[in-house]
């Protein structure tokens, strides 16, 4: 799951656009920046981290959301 969007976020919105799960939204008030709104819906696809124009701003952990049912 996505763990962090650092203060180096410029608020460009690229991560919001590329997230297929609507996990990231733009902050509603204050500084224009992206925030993690629905972390547990993140599927660790790395789109946001790969597409962010400021390297090191977003960190995604590969660990899967705990609610996914496994075969055993």
């Amino acid at each position: 799951m996505i763990e962090e969007i650092k203060d180096s976020c410029t608020g460009c919105g690229v991560c919001v656009s590329s997230c297929p799960m609507d996990v990231i939204r733009m902050e509603k008030t204050g500084k224009k920046r992206a925030v993690i709104r629905y972390r547990f819906d993140c599927m660790s696809c790395f789109n946001c981290e790969e597409d962010c124009p400021v390297p090191g701003t977003i960190y995604v952990s590969p660990e899967r959301s705990p609610w996914v049912t496994l075969p055993w």
Binding site: P20, M43, L70
Partner: peptide, 10 residues
């Protein structure tokens, strides 16, 4: 089904 494989949960 939002199951356990990369990039499939949408």
């Amino acid at each position: 089904f939002k199951a356990s494989y990369i990039g499939h949960r949408m």
